[in-house]
C-alpha cells in the first residue's frame, strides 16, 4: 500500500534530490512524484511504499535542513500510528 507525503522544502540546491534519496535509502520505493516551485518554497508530493513504519521515515525526513514541513495524507496503518503517538505521550487510543 502506498502512502503520500507532502513536503514544503527550502528552494535550495539539491533539496528535492536529498529528500528523494533519503526516502529510497531508508527502504521505501518511490511510486509517484510531483514537484513545483511556489513562492519561496518547493512543494513536493511523493507516494511511497515500503514495509517499515512511515512515521519513522517522517521523523527521519523532518531532521533534514531543507525540509520545512512534511505531512502524511490520511490512510496510514491505524495501529502503528496510534502506538507511535502513544509512545510520544500523545493521547491516542491503541486499537485492540
Amino acid at each position: 500500500m502506498s502512502q503520500r507525503l507532502n513536503f514544503r522544502l527550502r528552494p535550495t540546491e539539491g533539496s528535492v534530490l536529498r529528500v528523494l534519496g533519503s526516502i529510497e535509502r531508508r527502504g521505501f520505493s518511490l511510486e509517484h512524484i510531483e514537484s513545483r516551485r511556489v513562492g519561496n518554497a518547493i512543494l513536493l508530493s511523493v507516494a511511497v511504499s515500503g514495509e517499515r513504519p512511515v512515521e519513522v521515515l517522517i521523523r527521519q525526513l523532518e531532521r533534514l535542513y531543507d525540509v520545512l514541513s512534511v505531512e502524511l495524507e490520511p490512510c496510514p496503518d491505524a495501529y502503528t500510528t496510534a502506538c507511535l503517538q502513544q509512545s510520544f505521550g500523545e493521547p491516542a487510543a491503541v486499537p485492540t
Binding site: E55, V56, R59, Q60, L84
Partner: peptide, 11 residues
C-alpha cells in the same frame, strides 16, 4: 533525535 525512536525496536 526523534528519528531514532522506534526505528528498529518499538519504544
Amino acid at each position: 533525535d526523534p528519528g531514532e525512536i522506534s526505528k528498529l525496536r518499538y519504544a
